[in-house]
C-alpha cells in the first residue's frame, strides 16, 4: 500500500517534467514570436543567397551538371579531376597560397601598425590620416589607375620614371611578363587591403581604458613595446579576432584585381587564382558541377584557415 502511494507521485512528476520541458520550449518559441518576425526578412534573403547556395554548391560538386542536361551523380570524380588532372588548378592553388601567405599577414600587420601610429596623433591629424589610408578601400574600382602606372609602354608612369632616371632602357611589360605580374597584383592588393580591419583597430585603440595604461606604468612597464604587448594587444583581442577574419577572407578572394590588371586569363596563368579558376568554369565553360567542386575547396580553405587563426589569436597575451 505504502509503496503504491509512493510510486504514484514519482511517475507523475517525471511525466510532468517531460511535458513541461516541451511546453516550456513551446512557450519560449511563442514568446520569441516577435523576434522571429523581426528577423525573418533578413534571414529569408540570407538563407536564399548565402546558406542554400553553400549547401547547393556542396551537393552539386558530386554531380556532372552543365545547366542543360539533368545533373547526374559522379561521386568524387570532380575532386579527383581537380587535384590529379588539372594542372591549371594547381597553378591557381599555388598562386592563391602565395597571395594569401604574403598579403594576409602583411596587410594584417600593416592595419595594426598604421592604426597604432595614427592613434598617437592629435585628433584632427588622426582623422585625416585615417581617411588617407582608408580611401583606397572606399574608392572601389578606381584601381584601374594602376593600369596606367604599370602600363607596358613608355607612357606608363613607372616605365617613364625608370627610363628618364636611366634605370632601364626599354619599357618593361609589367602586366604581360610572368616575372612581374604576380608581384604587381600583390602590390595593388596590399594598397587596397587597409579596410574594415583597419577601422576596427583604430576604434579599438581609442577605447582602451586609459587607467589600464596608467596602472601598467605604475607596475613597471618601461617602454612602448612592453605597453603594446602587455596592455594594448590583450585589451584589443576582440578587434584583433575580427580583423583577422576580414583580412584572411580578403587574402583568399583575390580575383577582381587580378582580372582588371593582368587580364582573364592572365599570361600563362601567372595571376590565375582559385577564384578566377572558378569563374572560368562557372561563367565561361558552364561546367557547374566542376565549378562547385572548386567553390567547395575555396570554402574549405577560407573557413579552415579562419578557424585555425582564430584559435591561435585567442592565445595572444595569455
Amino acid at each position: 500500500m505504502q509503496t503504491k502511494i509512493n510510486h504514484q507521485p514519482t511517475t507523475g512528476s517525471i511525466y510532468q517534467a517531460k511535458e513541461s520541458r516541451l511546453a516550456k520550449f513551446k512557450k519560449e518559441l511563442k514568446r520569441g514570436k516577435h523576434y522571429y518576425i523581426l528577423m525573418a526578412p533578413y534571414f529569408i534573403i540570407f538563407g536564399l543567397f548565402t546558406l542554400i547556395p553553400v549547401a547547393v554548391s556542396f551537393v552539386l560538386s558530386f554531380f556532372h551538371f552543365n545547366m542543360l542536361e539533368f545533373p547526374n551523380f559522379i561521386g568524387w570524380d570532380n575532386y579527383s579531376r581537380l587535384f590529379l588532372n588539372d594542372d591549371i588548378f594547381m597553378i591557381a592553388l599555388r598562386n592563391t597560397f602565395i597571395f594569401a601567405v604574403i598579403t594576409g599577414p602583411i596587410s594584417y600587420i600593416a592595419c595594426f601598425l598604421f592604426a597604432w601610429i595614427i592613434n598617437e596623433l592629435s585628433p584632427k591629424v588622426r582623422a585625416f590620416m585615417t581617411l588617407i589610408f582608408y580611401a583606397p578601400s572606399l574608392s572601389g574600382n578606381v584601381f584601374f589607375i594602376w593600369l596606367i602606372i604599370f602600363s607596358g609602354d613608355s607612357y606608363g608612369y613607372l616605365n617613364g620614371f625608370l627610363m628618364s632616371a636611366g634605370f632601364i632602357l626599354e619599357p618593361i611589360q609589367w602586366l604581360r611578363d610572368e616575372q612581374y605580374i604576380l608581384w604587381v597584383v600583390i602590390l595593388v592588393q596590399l594598397w587596397l587591403s587597409l579596410g574594415t580591419a583597419f577601422l576596427a583597430f583604430i576604434a579599438g585603440l581609442q577605447t582602451i581604458d586609459r587607467s589600464l595604461i596608467e596602472a601598467g606604468a605604475v607596475d613597471g612597464i618601461k617602454n612602448r613595446w612592453q605597453e603594446l604587448w602587455f596592455i594594448t594587444l590583450p585589451s584589443m583581442k576582440p578587434q584583433l579576432l575580427f580583423g583577422a577574419v576580414m583580412q584572411i577572407t580578403m587574402a583568399f578572394a583575390v580575383a577582381d584585381i587580378s582580372i582588371a590588371l593582368a587580364g582573364f586569363p592572365s599570361v600563362n596563368y601567372a595571376a590565375h587564382t582559385v577564384v578566377t579558376h572558378l569563374m572560368d568554369y562557372g561563367s565561361i565553360r558552364f561546367e557547374m558541377g566542376y565549378a562547385s567542386a572548386i567553390a567547395t575547396v575555396l570554402f574549405t580553405l577560407m573557413v579552415g584557415t579562419n578557424l585555425v587563426i582564430q584559435k591561435l589569436l585567442r592565445k595572444v597575451g595569455e
Binding site: M279, L298, V303, L307
Partner: peptide, 21 residues
C-alpha cells in the same frame, strides 16, 4: 554563429548557386 561563419568566406563561393536562385 552562422552569421560569424558567413564572415569567413567571400561571396565568390556562392556565385554559381546564386545565379541559379
Amino acid at each position: 554563429s552562422i552569421v560569424i561563419l558567413a564572415l569567413m568566406f567571400s561571396p565568390h563561393v556562392t556565385a554559381i548557386p546564386n545565379y541559379m536562385v
